[in-house]
């Protein structure tokens, strides 16, 4: 299982967070000077849970329609913003600066 301290060592990490399966924020760590806060991370957790559910529906539908396997179960959702990207999987997530982000490393750390 990932831990928040480990996630904060990812390049450009601004925040690491853990949330319930419903999307409620359980724990978080913020880097110094980060302008994220617990309210935003709680909302972001809900965003990630909601989009993972939608992606799961899409993966199921796509696999049924095309016969292509390999999309389900969904193993991560990322939201890319102007300056930051968040990567989530399961009940953990990390927010990183785009200029430093290593997405593959983030997904590995969250697996």
């Amino acid at each position: 299982m990932p831990n928040l301290d480990q996630l904060m060592t990812l390049p450009g990490a601004l925040a690491a967070f853990e949330f319930s399966d419903k999307g409620e924020l359980l724990n978080s760590k913020l880097s110094e000077g980060s302008n994220l806060n617990e309210t935003a991370l709680d909302l972001l957790s809900h965003v990630c849970v909601a989009n993972t559910s939608i992606a799961t529906m899409q993966a199921r539908g796509w696999e049924n329609m095309t016969g292509d396997q390999g999309f389900y179960p969904v193993q991560g959702f990322s939201m890319i913003g102007l300056d930051w990207t968040t990567v989530t999987h399961g009940q953990f997530g990390v927010v990183m600066e785009n200029d430093k982000a290593d997405l593959e490393a983030a997904y590995s750390a969250l697996a």
């Binding site: 939608i54 529906m57 899409q58 199921r60 539908g61 049924n64 329609m65």
Partner: peptide
């Protein structure tokens, strides 16, 4: 968008 997908799937 979700209705389109439901219809499609």
């Amino acid at each position: 968008g979700n209705a389109d997908q439901l219809s499609m799937f």
